[in-house]
Amino acid sequence: MTETPLIVTKDLTKTYPMGLHTIAALDSVSLSFDKGEFAGLVGPSGSGKTTLLNIIGSLDTPTAGSAVVMGQRIEALTHKEAARLRNRHVGFIFQTFNLLPVYTVYENVEFALLLLGLPPAERRRKVLAALEWVHLADRAKSRPAQLSGGESQRVAIARAIVKEPDIILADEPTANLDAQNSHNILRTMARLNGELGTTFIFATHDFKVMQYLRRTVTLIDGRVDTDQQTDGRPGTSGAGEQP
């Protein structure tokens, strides 16, 4: 029996008004993603990668068509329902890390669990486990300003995985990192994907990221141009060891 896809989009369209005209960021995009995929949306700037990621993450709604994520129709969700979907099932990783600067590493990671209403002891256990995963347990009391770019992105990963989501959406996660840190981050994500079965969807035009993808969806002008399975085994150039 075939497993139901986690994410299904059908004729997904998103337009934005631009003066007297409308710009189509997405144009009839139909895709599906299964559990455990390590997939990427690639394409030039303005091709609709981030828009599609935002809709899958229920940060945005489609103009037409439908997006079903974890069995829920994004276009029909209220603010509260969309927040619940993000809180329980979706983790985000952003290009600029988006850590809350006044809170420590520990508190940044803990925040997602506060929203879930978990008891303090359980929160502590999960936060420390997530920080161990990204090898940052010793930086738990540091503030984001005291971290390097690579460390900040690893905190963002810890924050995304701490609630054990089904899907992690990563928008240009390596754009602000050097090659060494990029590979470290990507290896960490691949390890999470392999060990926890978390579905990863990237929006990227970074070749380093593409090397790790097992599925590459190319978007051009808001349309799906190609959808290919890849081997997801990067070369060794520039890659370091453990982060």
Partner: peptide
């Protein structure tokens, strides 16, 4: 924005 992305709802 980031708090909303992490799953906090608008009302909260």
């Amino acid at each position: 924005g980031i708090r909303l992305a992490l799953g906090e709802d608008h009302g909260r």
